[in-house]
Design a protein around this nucleic acid. Structure first.
Lengths: 241, 241
DNA sequence: TCTGACCAAATAGTCAGACTTTTGTCACGT
DNA sequence: ACGTGACAAAAGTCTGACTATTTGGTCAGA
């Protein structure tokens, strides 16, 4: 009996969510190794859930590319190359255990690609409302950053990036907002942030907001690239010590 | 009774796959509008499948952010901003109907972000084996492109981009290979390609391959950007006429 | 008439058990 | 060695029951 699931609180559909979370995290962390084989029977008995609950969880994991189900064989953990790494849940699982900094490193490389492009597009398309939101977010980052209030700072930071990606007017870029949010969250919640946010980083956010407001795609793109590089450098430093 | 599902061939788990496909496509195409409400009961009776099958399909759609399920109210189609647009299946559904060119346009903007970065990274990290694969893919593109063999050309094109993304050594970038593959596939299978591939585009692929081989990240990045721009321009032209 | 408490119906969530289909394995005969 | 056929294991599917939650309405009282 695997005592991995959270207590069945007064919440909604806990069984499915808990089972999914537990299995997903076990796979993401490698505790269930690639190639390992499960059976529905095994899951129902070790987690003490019904067959339907187990099947539904497996179907979701299958849709994320984490497992493959075959008759007469069972449920096999698929090789990592087949995982759908952009699923926010999988990202969260991977951050919660195992290769945390690994994940954050690859995410940073990726952000270096798409956030500058998003900034450039936003400079062409942002609405006045979005510009106001960006300015407000930067302002909040300044205050909370100075006081060392990490939670509100995180919220403002997320708001900044989400707004910028939305302002790009590109649905796919906007969809990456949840990914970026998870990354920022993971960075502060897993002690990969300096206790006080770097004032330089905040200044760069301000530069981006200003460039977007002034419809200067080139400058927006450049400053955004600087933000990512700063974040990557900070991450490397925290990781190194 | 909605006669939307493919005939139950000799395949494996047809019921689930067909139901999921049908529902997913109906939602992606907008035939099931945002905010519309389904019930399990309705699904089981209109598709003539069991409750379990319906539940499993809904659970997967839920995990993609396409629907939300609530007691006493039913299964609601969620607003598009909440969809997980990076799920390869959703991309395919959206290409198969409705906003095909819309989707391809946003994908192009996105590719403009990450493929150049991938090319630059590949120039630093590609193995000799990968360089060989890139060269072979370009060679195949030249011959099949000259003869107008669109299917083999597509295959070589996909191979090129997949290899490049893999060579970036970044797992997230590699994961985008399936996205790019679907896009390339959609472009040729939906008459959004010129009958004969543009020789200039092929030359650009060759430039990228050479820059990667010569460990020149800047050149690789630049040429890759040119590829994307060429593709976007071609797409706009095909779309425009 | 408004307010609040309570009740009933609708609907998803969960479970248990049966049957069907596919497929890997192994024993058997050639 | 090489088919080949029987067996069994496992997922796939279906059905029906029960549970839990939430909505919406009803009714008593102020």
């Amino acid at each position: 009996m695997i005592n991995d699931v959270k207590p069945n609180g007064a919440g909604r559909s806990r069984i499915h969510a808990d089972l999914l979370d537990s299995l997903g995290e076990r796979i993401a962390s490698g505790r269930l190794a690639v190639g390992e084989v499960l059976t529905l029977e095994g899951i129902t008995s070790s987690y003490d859930v019904s067959r339907s609950a187990a099947r539904e969880a497996i179907r979701v994991l299958e849709s994320m590319g984490l497992v493959a189900s075959k008759r007469r064989v069972g449920i096999t953990v698929r090789p990592r190359e087949q995982w759908n790494l952009f699923d926010p849940r999988l990202i969260r699982w991977r951050l919660e255990c195992g290769d945390r900094s690994n994940q954050l490193l690859s995410l940073s490389e990726l952000r270096r690609g798409f956030e500058p492009v998003a900034a450039a597009l936003a400079a062409e398309r942002a609405t006045p409302e979005q510009n106001r939101t960006l300015a407000a977010a930067v302002s909040d980052m300044v205050v909370t950053g100075r006081d060392g209030d990490l939670e509100p700072y995180l919220e403002a930071d997320q708001r900044f990036h989400r707004t910028l990606l939305e302002a790009s007017g590109n649905e796919m870029l906007r969809a990456l907002a949840s990914v970026v949010a998870v990354v920022l969250e993971g960075r502060t919640h897993h002690d990969l942030m300096p206790r006080n946010p770097n004032p330089e980083a905040i200044a760069l956010h301000d530069e981006v907001a200003r460039a977007v407001r002034q419809r200067d795609p080139g400058a927006a793109e450049k400053s955004m690239r600087a933000i990512i590089d700063e974040a990557a450098a900070a991450l490397a430093e925290e990781h190194g010590r």
